[in-house]
């Protein structure tokens, strides 16, 4: 279970501080698909990065199965993340010189372990990429890229998948395919936290949380 407890993030700008993420309380239980919806610049990505331990909040706590992510050292957090958290981004962030299969297996290099060939092929099959295994990202369609990124995120069966506007670059058909995979993942007991500005996409989640427009919350300090 992921818990964001009164998490706040601000950035300095001159003598003022800009609020990037208003205080938020959020819980994502195991087997739950939660969407965070908000307008552009509302702090959706900031929320996701904090939830994944990639960004420190100004205040508040982030707990995953009772572990306080921001109390860990940099390397402890990296190890924890590799075992428990999967990321998928709008821009895919595939490594351009690796094939589809190698991109799916990239977390192995990050983790320093290389025995996931079978799992990688299994995922590629599940995501309809088995005919693209030797292709590089430049040779894939947007939908295939995103499916590759999704397969990569699920290689080590993380407890939670954090998805940032993952349908943003996809057409309606591909977006539905990708969302279908997320729902499949949730059925197997995984959790999904999806941030999106698209109300229709968000509505397909089990639960939707709204982020307010941050401009209304800016306060001089």
């Amino acid at each position: 279970m992921l818990v964001l407890d009164r998490v706040v993030k601000t950035y300095p700008k001159g003598s003022r501080r800009i609020t990037a993420l208003a205080p938020i309380d959020l819980t994502v239980r195991a087997g739950e698909f939660v969407a965070v919806e908000g307008p552009s610049g509302s702090g959706k990505t900031t929320c996701l990065l904090i939830a994944g331990g990639l960004l420190d909040p100004d205040s508040g706590k982030v707990l995953l199965d009772g572990h306080d992510l921001h109390a860990m050292t940099r390397n402890q957090l990296a190890a924890f993340r590799s075992q428990n958290i999967g990321f998928v981004f709008q821009q895919y962030h595939l490594i351009p010189y690796l094939s589809v299969l190698e991109n799916i297996l990239a977390p192995e290099a990050a983790r320093g372990r290389a025995n996931g060939q079978a799992r990688g092929r299994e995922l590629a099959g599940q995501f309809g990429l088995d005919h693209r295994l030797d292709h590089t990202p430049a040779e894939l369609s947007c939908g295939e890229k995103q499916r590759t990124a999704l397969a990569r995120a699920l290689l080590f069966r993380p407890k939670i998948l954090l998805a940032d506007e993952i349908t943003g670059n996809l057409d309606h058909v591909n977006a539905q395919i990708v969302l279908g995979y997320l729902r499949e993942y949730v059925k197997t007991g995984g959790s999904v936290l999806l941030v999106t500005h698209d109300r229709e996409i968000a509505s397909q989640a089990d639960r939707v949380e709204y982020l307010p427009d941050p401009r209304e919350l800016e306060t001089p300090r």
């Binding site: 990296a78 190890a79 993340r81 981004f89 962030h93 990050a110």
Partner: peptide, 16 residues
Amino acid sequence: RGEIGILRALGARTRT
């Protein structure tokens, strides 16, 4: 930079 960022997000440690 992007490659390093995603590897860190995937759990790569400093030494990796």
